[in-house]
Amino acid sequence: MFANSKRIKRNKTIDKVFRYLFMGMAVLSASFIIIIVAFVCIKGISPFLPGYEFGQVDLWSFLTGSVYRQDTATYGVGFIIINTLICSFLALLLSFPISVLTSLFIAKIAPKKLGAAMQSVIELLASVPSVVYGIFASGVITAMVRSLAASLGIATFGGSSLLAVIILLAIMIFPTLTSMSITAIKAVDKDLESASLALGATKTQTNFKVVLTAAKSGIFAGAILGLGRAFGEATAVSMVAGNKLFGPTFDLFDITRTLTSTMLTGLKETSGLDYDIRFSVGLVLIVVIFASNWILNQVKKRIGNQV
């Protein structure tokens, strides 16, 4: 009896230890997001504080500046923020209709086998690493842009251009958008479809008018996710952006510069203002992503309520 109760006590202690161990791991995992934001904040803000060792940078001219040059230590990211927004939103605009139609095809229209094959294509596209898209972009997309520009009589910088970035990003967010809308479309209540069909609508009418409308909110969530990816995409974009020193860039055939390409290019030394300012750019990137997420989620709530 005594030995037994001792064992129970020991088991209880072991249970407790594991419980706290698992909890600790969960808390640790969750706390990384705070650690990431906190440390990038601390390091990113430091160049704007008085007493910064490499010479204090003016926050206002950093945020609103329209020139970013490493050689003259002129750091302004205002135009880069605008560039990043332009690239990402235009990429979304290009990719959105194609991916919604594709997801409708996979989920509703295609014969079963063709749909499954198409789904595999989307999954493979999703698993292609960013650098590989980068090579494709600098080898193929730039060549396409170059010949398009040549046929219009416009000179480009070897094809690196705003247009190339937009096409690249549209391709890269395509799998995200598509798989999110597939999920949303598949989640639509079958009764809605049946009702529409019973009222005499054709299958296609039902798909386009009823299913897509009902899946609106989920599709929009996919768009938000895709936009986040477009903002944060780094290596592939910097292979074709061209890194313009000033801006913003509105001409499709002109080179551009995004927040991520700014952080990646010309990285040589691991100290000094040119290195630290990259953290400030990273901080701006985080803020842009969070802000756009928040705004779009508000929009999504409005759209969702209308159904």
């Binding site: 990384f32 650690i35 986040g228 990137l285 997420n293």
Partner: peptide
């Protein structure tokens, strides 16, 4: 849970900075 979910949305370049 929210903290862990948010991690998936962080761009990898920001992980590099961290």
């Amino acid at each position: 849970r929210q903290g862990i979910d948010t991690l998936t949305g962080v761009p990898s370049i920001v992980y590099g900075l961290m």
